[in-house]
Design a protein around this nucleic acid. Sequence first.
DNA 1: GTGTCAATTGACACAGTGTCAAGCAAAAAG
DNA 2: CTTTTTGCTTGACACTGTGTCAATTGACAC
Lengths: 194, 194
Amino acid sequence: MSRENTETRTKILQATVETLEQEGGRGVRMGDIAKATGISRQAVYLHFTSRAELLTAAFLFLGDQLDVEGRLAPSRSAATGVERLERYIEFWGNYLPEIYGVAKALMMAQDTDEAAATAWRDRMLAMRDGCRAAIDALYDDGMLASEWTRPKATDALFALLQVPSWEYLTIECGWSNKEYIRRMTATAKRTFID
Amino acid sequence: MSRENTETRTKILQATVETLEQEGGRGVRMGDIAKATGISRQAVYLHFTSRAELLTAAFLFLGDQLDVEGRLAPSRSAATGVERLERYIEFWGNYLPEIYGVAKALMMAQDTDEAAATAWRDRMLAMRDGCRAAIDALYDDGMLASEWTRPKATDALFALLQVPSWEYLTIECGWSNKEYIRRMTATAKRTFID
DNA sequence: GTGTCAATTGACACAGTGTCAAGCAAAAAG
DNA sequence: CTTTTTGCTTGACACTGTGTCAATTGACAC
């Protein structure tokens, strides 16, 4: 498992990300990834013990490539709670389409694979933390609507931003990503700000 | 396929519903359902051509058992748009936990099975219609917030009520069902009513 | 008795994951 | 310039779960 940072390992991850992105996360088998990488199926297992581990690694790999930390900076440096909320939703709305393929595959693997479930949960907890920070910032400004406690508002904001919800609105309903961000921001502000 | 309404067919559906409810829709195989029914695995295939067909039939069967139509009546007979919205969310919040097991199984089958995907989509379109009706009623009362068109508001309301969102808030975050209904109603009212 | 129908049993094809062992080729080490 | 090591290949195989097929049984109907 995970023979350090071999060149091949990176090529596998790259191919995984590309293939999943292309297929929308659906129906991608270990053999497909091997073929896309240009190696044998068994070679993939020399670097990743299981499909779940590969998907998890690919998700983290993509996160690095996309510079999540850098993208979160505008939200983190916001002057007000409202601004922080706005910028966080904007980050999320721009980030989601880029991770969608890999995220979808990991979500789907969740159903049958315990390891994938844990991995996905961990990743989502990290995202939830951004929601918590935005809500806390609102609260510190005295702007959090009185009906919400901070934990409940965090739960609700994160629920609002769930992947399936984005999936439904953009892919199913045909909303543009810009519209998704605009309307979700408006909804969040109406919901959480007094 | 579907040899009319044999007694065995009903027993299979009943066992399917119970088993899925019990297991939260996860990890239930054709053989498990056969065992729960007290028949052989092959006998199940005498009544349902595929797992997808069985799950779909179980979903409809459960819908009848739970009297969806009857439960929707309060929302349909609401005097005002606001009331209609409130009652629809209340219906949905009480309905969802009861169908969760079967719904989850059908949702999961979606990922690999085209027939299951279509079946689930159809069922959800029916539910979406309730959202549309509630939004239309609001609009007719002149209460729909100016930033929303009726179709967009329908999309958004339905997205708010997605199964994964409910799943997250109740199962993951531990919200009671009552709290889910209360907070979702409040959120919807803040979002869609001017 | 002879059909017919529902269900049983057991075998099997198929897809996909994951494992194992033998071999091979090129780089590293003596 | 051999030997060893490393990374990969090839091919076979176990396992799980779905769906199919054929032969058989048992009951009830005519």
